[in-house]
Design a protein around this nucleic acid. Structure first.
Length: 103
DNA sequence: GCCGTGACTTTCA
DNA sequence: GTGAAAGCCACGG
C-alpha cells in the first residue's frame, strides 16, 4: 500500500518540536489532507517502533488522549508528554499554550 | 464491491 | 464543560 499520505503524515508529525503537541485534524490539514483525521490515527496505529515518530505529541481536538485510561498506550503517551513538560490533568492535556501549527 | 470499524472533528442540546 | 449524533475516508473481511 503506497499511500503517499503516509509519508506526508509522518513528515508532518516528525516536524513537531519537542514540548509541543498537535491534533489529528491539524496534522491531516498540514499534510494537505483535510477531513482525514481518522486516516492520521490509522497511520499512527500501523506505525512500527523503528519509525522514530513522536506519535505521543498527537492528541485529539478535545485535548484528550484517544486511548482508554487503562490502556498501555495511554500511559506511554501521558508519560512521554509529561516528560516533555506537558501537563495532563483529568485526562486532558494543557496544550492551549503549547499547540503547534506549521507555518 | 458492499459493510463494519476506527488513535477523529464539528455541531447542537 | 459535557455528551450525543452526523459526517468523512481508508482498510480488512
Amino acid at each position: 500500500m503506497n499511500t503517499q499520505y503516509r509519508q506526508q503524515i509522518l513528515s508532518t508529525v516528525a516536524a513537531i518540536p519537542r514540548g509541543f503537541v498537535s491534533s489529528y485534524g491539524d496534522i491531516a490539514r498540514l499534510a494537505g489532507l483535510p477531513n482525514q483525521a481518522r486516516l492520521v490515527g490509522y497511520v499512527l496505529k500501523t506505525l512500527p517502533e523503528e519509525s522514530r515518530i513522536p506519535w505521543h505529541r498527537v492528541i485529539n481536538a478535545q485535548g484528550k488522549i484517544s486511548f482508554p485510561c487503562d490502556s498501555l498506550s495511554y500511559h506511554r503517551q501521558r508519560l512521554a508528554l509529561e516528560e516533555e513538560g506537558l501537563i495532563v490533568k483529568n485526562n486532558k492535556v494543557q496544550w492551549l499554550k503549547k499547540r503547534w501549527a506549521a507555518q
